[in-house]
């Protein structure tokens, strides 16, 4: 039967959810509409901007191009799963303190991409950071502060060559 709803069990930010969804729902739609996790954004909706990035079993994916039903049994992390109301995740702290957020639309995707990078490589060079976030487009910041913020969490701020200036500005 066309578009018959099917059972879907996924773990999102550590909590198990049991849903019934139609086949034509993407993971992005289900996260935003069924679970009210609106951190992941719909921008290009065609896998080219990264605003919809979430982590599926540790891998950053474009959730706008993943069918929700394809995530049966998977472990998903959205931006809401990082940090708490009282204590931000180190990446979130760094983005705030480095001025890496302007409109904030790309930020959830950027932070999750950075988290995936640092989980695999805790000491990336600036080049590797830029390569990792190359799938996340930012219209506001010009990426400089974003790269600084990510490197700051590794303790490698000097790597970017910007660290000295930032400290002096304070």
């Amino acid at each position: 039967m066309v578009n018959q709803k099917k059972q879907l069990t996924i773990r999102v930010n550590g909590r198990l959810h049991s849903l019934t969804v139609e086949p034509n729902r993407t993971l992005l739609e289900v996260l935003r509409e069924d679970l009210s996790l609106t951190g992941a954004k719909e921008a290009c909706d065609t896998g080219g901007c990264g605003a919809c990035t979430v982590l599926v079993s540790g891998k950053p994916v474009y959730s706008c191009l993943v069918l929700a039903l394809d995530c049966q049994g998977e472990d998903i992390i959205t931006i809401e799963g990082l940090g708490t109301d009282d204590k931000l995740h180190p990446l979130q702290e760094a983005f705030v303190s480095h001025g890496a957020i302007q409109c904030g639309f790309c930020t959830p995707g950027m932070i999750l991409t950075a988290k995936a990078l640092l989980d695999e490589n805790p000491n990336p060079t600036e080049k590797k950071v830029r390569a990792a976030i190359a799938g996340n487009i930012c219209r506001c910041t010009g990426y400089t502060k974003i790269v600084e913020a990510i490197l700051a969490t590794t303790g490698n701020e000097e790597e970017s060559g910007y660290g000295g200036e930032h400290k002096e500005a304070q």
């Binding site: 039967m1 066309v2 578009n3 018959q4 099917k6 139609e22 086949p23 034509n24 729902r25 993407t26 739609e29 909706d45 065609t46 069918l67 039903l69």
Partner: peptide
């Protein structure tokens, strides 16, 4: 953009 309806096998 919404995906059109389909059966998923």
């Amino acid at each position: 953009m919404r995906l059109p309806s389909f059966e998923y096998l």
